[in-house]
Computed example of a mutant assay.
Amino acid sequence: MAVIQVQIVTPSGIVYNHRASRVIVKSIDGQVGILPGHTPIIVPLAIDSVRIERVSMDEENVIAVNGGIMEMRDNVCSIIADSAERARDIDVERAFSAKQRAEEILSKEEAVHNSKQQRRAEISLRKAINRISVSKHRKL
């Protein structure tokens, strides 16, 4: 049975390195499903979750990825991300605090007039919402 070796790397180091039967990512153009033998591909990633169906266990791992790129070649799926967190490693309280801060900035009138500040707050909000969403997949 063919498998995919999945590696997720950030500037801080390796976040994930396991074998999988399927990987699902969200590129900036939409969702992409990767199976063993997939044609070589490189895609830019959106702020979203990466879902990985593990081979050795009958489970799915979910990782919050905040942008980056994915390359699939020779049954190796490499994801290089700005930051990434496994569901089990997410500090949910910190994610909710970041979400609240971003919403407060966006609600202020000066953010509407400062497009750079608004853009940063929107990205922070998307990252926080992604982390909160992925945290719901942690095993208890």
Score class of each variant (00 low, 15 high):
residue 124 S to C: 10
residue 92 V to I: 11
residue 6 V to A: 12
residue 140 L to I: 14
residue 115 S to M: 10
residue 110 E to R: 14
residue 125 L to A: 03
residue 1 M to V: 15
residue 97 S to T: 01
residue 99 K to M: 11
residue 21 S to Q: 15
residue 9 V to I: 15
residue 111 A to T: 14
residue 127 K to G: 01
residue 106 L to E: 02
residue 34 I to C: 14
residue 45 L to Y: 08
residue 92 V to T: 10
residue 92 V to R: 10
residue 20 A to T: 11
residue 96 F to C: 01
residue 93 E to P: 00
residue 92 V to P: 02
residue 16 Y to N: 08
residue 122 E to D: 10
residue 140 L to Y: 09
residue 93 E to R: 12
residue 122 E to G: 01
residue 63 I to Q: 01
residue 86 R to M: 05
residue 34 I to S: 10
residue 23 V to I: 15
residue 120 R to M: 08
residue 124 S to V: 02
residue 75 N to A: 07
residue 33 G to Y: 06
residue 97 S to P: 00
residue 87 A to Q: 11
residue 23 V to H: 08
residue 7 Q to F: 08
residue 122 E to Q: 15
residue 39 T to F: 10
residue 29 D to V: 04
residue 90 I to E: 07
residue 71 E to Q: 15
residue 134 V to K: 09
residue 69 I to Y: 10
residue 114 N to M: 02
residue 27 S to E: 11
residue 91 D to N: 13
residue 104 E to K: 15
residue 27 S to N: 09
residue 76 V to I: 09
residue 8 I to S: 03
residue 26 K to D: 05
residue 1 M to H: 15
residue 58 D to F: 09
residue 49 S to W: 02
residue 26 K to W: 06
residue 108 K to Y: 03
residue 22 R to I: 13
residue 114 N to Q: 06
residue 140 L to P: 10
residue 96 F to I: 08
residue 104 E to S: 09
residue 28 I to C: 14
residue 122 E to R: 14
residue 99 K to G: 01
residue 71 E to S: 13
residue 34 I to L: 12
residue 115 S to C: 03
residue 109 E to W: 07
residue 11 P to V: 06
residue 66 N to H: 15
residue 44 P to E: 12
residue 50 V to L: 08
residue 118 Q to K: 14
residue 64 A to V: 10
residue 46 A to C: 06
residue 18 H to G: 00
residue 132 I to T: 00
residue 117 Q to M: 14
residue 114 N to H: 04
residue 23 V to G: 12
residue 59 E to P: 02
residue 13 G to F: 03
residue 98 A to I: 00
residue 30 G to F: 04
residue 87 A to W: 03
residue 19 R to F: 14
residue 5 Q to G: 11
residue 23 V to R: 09
residue 77 C to F: 05
residue 140 L to V: 12
residue 134 V to F: 06
residue 51 R to I: 05
residue 56 S to C: 05
residue 129 I to E: 14
residue 20 A to E: 13
residue 136 K to F: 04
residue 65 V to P: 01
residue 81 A to Y: 03
residue 62 V to C: 13
residue 140 L to W: 07
residue 60 E to R: 09
residue 110 E to H: 11
residue 63 I to L: 14
residue 95 A to N: 01
residue 107 S to P: 00
residue 83 S to H: 05
residue 65 V to M: 02
residue 117 Q to H: 04
residue 15 V to S: 11
residue 19 R to I: 04
residue 88 R to I: 13
residue 20 A to Q: 13
residue 128 A to Q: 04
residue 26 K to E: 07
residue 79 I to A: 09
residue 21 S to R: 13
residue 48 D to A: 14
residue 33 G to H: 12
residue 93 E to A: 10
residue 76 V to K: 15
residue 113 H to I: 00
residue 74 D to Q: 12
residue 5 Q to T: 14
residue 130 N to S: 02
residue 126 R to W: 05
residue 135 S to I: 07
residue 80 I to S: 08
residue 92 V to D: 03
residue 49 S to T: 11
residue 64 A to M: 07
residue 70 M to S: 02
